[in-house]
Design a protein around this nucleic acid. Structure first.
Lengths: 333, 333
DNA sequence: GGTTAAAATTGAATCGATTCATTCTACATA
DNA sequence: TATGTAGAATGAATCGATTCAATTTTAACC
């Protein structure tokens, strides 16, 4: 079936130890032997068995990445960043999709433990990720992704979601809006909660009141449904801020279907600034997050933790969101 | 660090063989012992080391999935299908992104060999995936994804891209269009080539000539660039068919920027029917492919191949594409 | 040629779960 | 009491790469 190091050794007339040295410490092998063994490796098409290697070493060069929804372009970008950075350092990545379900998340964590991953990058589904601490005892590093932690036993890479919420509402207020609806997902999602906090902060300062519409899932269909609720509000808002772009695109569709003009009759802001925001019916104003950077930073952080061990200092990296103005917002009528 | 089976055995006062039996053949263990050992496993938080297990077994329960672009929602959907199906059967999946580069693809194949994956699902970047045959000698099953194969040593799951190209042009011709532009990617991408064949087939039948615009990468920016080329055509087409939705969205933006109205002045069809096609500036008519199904089918196929071994009969599954009509197409002016 | 230090090579032990031939137990039957 | 048998439990050998103490080879010098 597959060629083992032992066979290479036999064929090249050297010991297994030497072949191992050729692979891992070529500098201690004589030039002649090195060349001969390398040729044999090539001839036989030998690829070392990562299982055996890591079984002995006690750890692997694989990472796990658990995100709530790969179908969301924001997380796809994050995943690309993680992958690129990991692959550059010789790490392979298991990508898992928790679908915002705590149960699925736990299942995947177990799978990843079995696979002996060296570290797990996770955007946890529940607010209090205490169960993650247990991983550390297993020697598995954990870095929170798109989520801040107060715990000093983990790294985290996040974007300032409170500030993001603030920026959005500040911008709308500056435009002159005073009746604003905030379409958000479950309070249990920390990103949503934080953006909501930002919304409230600014609302207080500007002494306006903001209507909260809560959807159960952050997808386009739910966004479309939210429109009905918005339109039945006692006082019609002049602007809508959505917890992410996907929901915003749903809301947009709902509004346009009912003949409501954007931005003339209703301004609309999303969150994430996914690539498709530009191609939307009305190019969508949004709060941009450095998704790819988020992925890269988190992968580098966790790999550094894996390799430096004790010498590693846990870090909390926080990126800043940015307002990207497009056609879906303007002054209220 | 991590608890080994040996420690469980010691603590439960049984032999390692018995613990192993508890895990893999509980029916041969007496009820009393079974319970005691299971309790110990729980107490100690023991999770079997997949490396050691698979090293001995000679194979793993992991699959590799190599796609040209995870950022493309079509492939994201495929990946979800693969993941769901694999996870249901207890398999973990490495997701790799080849970026349409043969070099990256080869690099990932090597990584996957090292990780001892049981099978690889791949949408190959080059047309003649001869190098994949070599994987079979390693005992790694290979299933082509979104790509047909004539080779009877592999399974394949694909969508009839020729038919897809035909459907699109047939529809445009039926509407009355006779001047059509076909915006496609590199000829080296088989899906593109096949769709092109479909385009040509129908063009011949209807005796119309179709202008081919080739972009180097299948992304929105390239689509936008293609518009310049289209508009400089000696005879302006009345309809454009794009090789995928992402490119189509780019073309749409390019057209709208220049004040060309869709569909009044120009009809536009995409391919893939990604979720965002609905939310586009002009909801996009597209050729739908059962992406999720594609993923599920391919994962089930390869797992069946892995587990049945010789008894497995290689299959070529082919799905049919479907026309989804939205607002971006109508009769020519 | 002899001595010694440095360089190169060797190969048995190891990682942890599985396998399977062997041993042990319990219990029914002669 | 002796015998047979099914059921349960055992533990050494195994998978393949790595490690490292021990050994062999090479080079350098007097």
């Amino acid at each position: 079936m597959s060629v083992s190091l032992r066979e290479v050794a036999a064929r090249a007339q050297v010991s297994v130890g030497t072949v191992s040295n050729v692979l891992n410490r070529p500098e201690v092998v004589s030039a002649l032997t090195l060349e001969r063994v390398q040729k044999t490796i090539k001839d036989l098409g030998f690829v070392p068995n990562a299982f055996a290697r890591h079984l002995r070493a006690g750890f692997s060069r694989t990472l796990g990445l658990i995100v709530p929804d790969v179908a969301n372009p924001f997380f796809t970008e994050v995943a690309r960043g993680v992958e690129d950075a990991a692959s550059k350092r010789g790490y392979a990545v298991f990508l898992c999709n928790s679908d915002e379900s705590v149960k699925k998340e736990e299942k995947y964590i177990n799978v990843l433990i079995q696979q002996q991953v060296r570290g797990i990058l996770i955007t946890p589904s529940n607010r209090d990720p205490a169960h993650l601490e247990a991983l550390l005892d297993r020697g598995i590093a954990v870095t929170l992704l798109d989520r801040e932690t107060k715990s000093r036993t983990q790294c985290s890479v996040s974007v300032d979601d409170i500030r993001g919420g603030e920026i959005a509402i500040e911008y709308l207020v500056t435009l002159g809006h005073r009746d604003i609806a905030w379409v958000c997902g479950p309070e249990s999602i920390p990103q949503v909660a934080d953006r909501g906090t930002g919304v409230t902060n600014v609302a207080k300062l500007a002494s306006i009141s903001i209507k909260t519409i809560r959807v159960t899932l952050m997808n386009a269909v739910q966004g479309e449904h939210a429109v009905t609720e918005i339109l039945s509000l006692p006082k019609l808002p002049t602007a809508i801020f959505c917890a992410n772009d996907i929901v915003a695109l749903g809301v947009m569709r709902g509004l346009l279907d009912r003949g409501i003009r954007i931005p003339e009759q209703m301004s609309l802001i999303g969150y994430d600034d996914i690539a498709f925001a530009t191609s939307a019916a009305i190019p969508l104003t949004s709060i941009a997050q450095p998704a790819y950077q988020l992925g890269v930073a988190s992968a580098e952080l966790i790999i550094s933790e894996c390799e430096k061990g004790e010498a590693h200092a846990h870090q909390q990296i926080k990126f800043q969101p940015k307002l990207v103005i497009r056609a879906s917002t303007q002054k209220p009528a």
